[in-house]
């Protein structure tokens, strides 16, 4: 292992890591928004929309991100929808993550038993209060483990971005391997940087899971 090589190319990896973090974060935030919307649509069984949401969820969950990205990045421009690689990466991650988040939130909402809503109503709470003080807090704590798993899953999925020529960590590693044949150093840096990104998220996620485990009413 050559320390010189590592220090020389460290800034390159740092730049790539920031790209991964930036697109990953934006993708996760968008996924949460889409997930909340879809979960609400399905929970309230809004006609037409809930059918469309179901189709979207099936399409998104049963296809790989890499194939989705290829279609978005290489396919769509052919019918005039041109996007740059970063937007494409975010859109792809949001398309994939939205359905995973929707499933996490929806199963949380559905896991809250009906008796909870009935009891709240018999106490004289209106629909908003029932949602705000009874249903959502319980649904939230039930969805947290799936939510945390999804965030980590989505951050890991960003590793395919190099396929649409985004200069992320994988791209950098592959590039250096191709250019200098410095396998050990390139791969070592790759692993270290992914650990720097993913370990804190994983530890925070585990802490969050412990923190919200209090709610177990009606179970």
């Amino acid at each position: 292992m050559s320390l010189e090589f590592i220090t020389k190319y460290l800034p390159l990896y740092e730049k790539a890591a920031w790209l991964t973090v930036r697109i990953g974060f934006a993708g996760v935030v968008l996924s949460i928004v889409i997930g909340l919307l879809c979960a609400a649509i399905q929970y309230y069984r809004i006609p037409v929309l809930s059918g469309l949401t179901a189709v979207y969820i099936e399409l998104s969950r049963n296809t790989p991100l890499l194939v989705q990205l290829f279609f978005l990045y290489y396919g769509l421009p052919k019918i005039g929808v041109r996007t740059d690689a970063q937007v494409c990466g975010m859109a792809g991650l949001a398309f994939l993550g939205g359905s995973y988040m929707a499933e996490a939130f929806r199963s949380g909402l559905e896991a809250v038993e009906k008796i909870q809503m009935e009891s709240a109503q018999s106490l004289g709470m209106n629909r908003y209060q029932t949602m705000r003080y009874v249903i959502l807090p319980q649904a939230f704590s039930i969805s947290v483990p799936a939510f945390v798993a999804n965030v980590i899953f989505l951050l890991k999925e960003t590793s395919v971005f190099s396929a649409i020529s985004l200069m992320d960590l994988m791209f950098t590693a592959k590039d250096l391997i191709g250019l200098y044949y410095k396998m050990t150093e390139s791969l070592f840096l790759l692993v270290v940087f992914y650990l720097i990104i993913l370990l804190p998220v994983s530890i925070l996620g585990a802490a969050l899971e412990r923190r919200v485990r209090y709610a177990g009413f009606g179970a």
Binding site: K156, E157, S159, M170, A173, V191, L198, S202
Partner: peptide, 13 residues
């Protein structure tokens, strides 16, 4: 904790 892509690279290269 590792993305599958990274594992692929580790084994392949």
């Amino acid at each position: 904790i590792m993305p599958q892509m990274v594992l692929l690279f580790l084994v392949f290269f």
